[in-house]
Design a binder for these strands. Structure first.
Length: 260
DNA sequence: ATGCCTTGTCGCACAAGA
């Protein structure tokens, strides 16, 4: 079973690109972030034509997440628990059944905490605390769990081409990196790290200042696996070439293959 | 230090992204 995640930066602007990638990569499950669309306006039909079931949690203009799955989506849950006043659409979960058992897939778009001297940074940290609580609860169910998405966290210096330029950025603050480590320390496996990809392969390159041609990238899109899922991990990768396509997203897809 | 691009918005400039 191939499970992928991609921050597409707008479904309206990226529909054809997303469809092209799906035809080439043929993931069984695709977690999408920043759909920037309300649920009613999400173009489900072209994805259904490719054989996908669609579950979305969108909002107007910003944010928004979706899960596409060739197998039926069960027990879909929208919103991250822990703050009833949080109006931002950044989280959706579903169970996907396979012949050998079920996998719980969580698709997230973790808040970008910038600028760090505004309420956005504590919102990011609080959101990460809620995520830790939710993952702890899901781990207790002992079902294979895949937590995939745009984490907006650079975990380590080697996850940036130039870590020095990120020192004042929310993505690279000691607090957000510590929160990411706390998540990992619940017992999750970072699939890309576990499979030792080529060095200096990132998942995001800014549109500005020639970041892509200079390979001035960062690794902020991650797929974290529970022990039951990590036991099934056979390969993982980053579809870097999509960044060079026409009208690209600034993120590229990350994927895993599970032997289920 | 800031903008550099890109997207979406009841556009005609601005917010937000990272």
């Amino acid at each position: 079973m191939k499970i992928a995640t991609w921050n597409i930066n707008g479904i309206k602007a990226r529909l054809e690109t997303t469809l092209t990638w799906l035809r080439e990569a043929t993931p069984d499950v695709a977690c999408l972030q920043e759909i920037k669309s309300i649920d009613e306006k999400f173009p489900s039909e072209p994805f259904e034509d490719l054989g996908y079931n669609v579950a979305t949690h969108g909002q107007k203009g910003f944010n928004g997440v979706a899960i596409l799955s060739k197998a039926p989506l069960e027990d879909v849950r929208q919103r991250l628990p822990g703050d009833e006043d949080d109006e931002q659409s950044r989280y959706i979960e579903a169970t996907i059944s396979t012949p050998t058992g079920a996998v719980r897939v969580a698709c997230l778009y973790l808040p970008n905490g910038n600028p760090i001297d505004t309420p956005k940074f504590p919102y990011q940290l609080a959101w990460m605390g809620r995520l830790e609580t939710r993952v702890r609860d899901l781990l207790a169910e002992e079902m294979p769990l895949v937590v995939a998405g745009d984490y907006n966290v650079i975990p380590r210096p080697e996850d940036a081409r130039r870590p020095d330029i990120w020192t004042g950025d929310a993505l690279y603050q000691p607090e957000s990196r510590a929160a990411f480590r706390r998540l990992i320390n619940l017992g999750l496996t970072d699939a890309i790290r576990a499979t030792e990809p080529a060095p200096e392969t990132y998942t995001f390159w800014d549109y500005q200042a020639g970041a892509w041609p200079k390979n001035n990238g960062i690794r902020i899109d991650h797929i974290l696996l529970s022990p039951q899922a990590a036991d099934c991990l056979t390969s993982a990768g980053i579809d870097k070439s999509t960044r060079g396509w026409e009208k690209p997203s600034d993120h590229v897809p990350v994927w895993i293959e599970l032997a289920t």
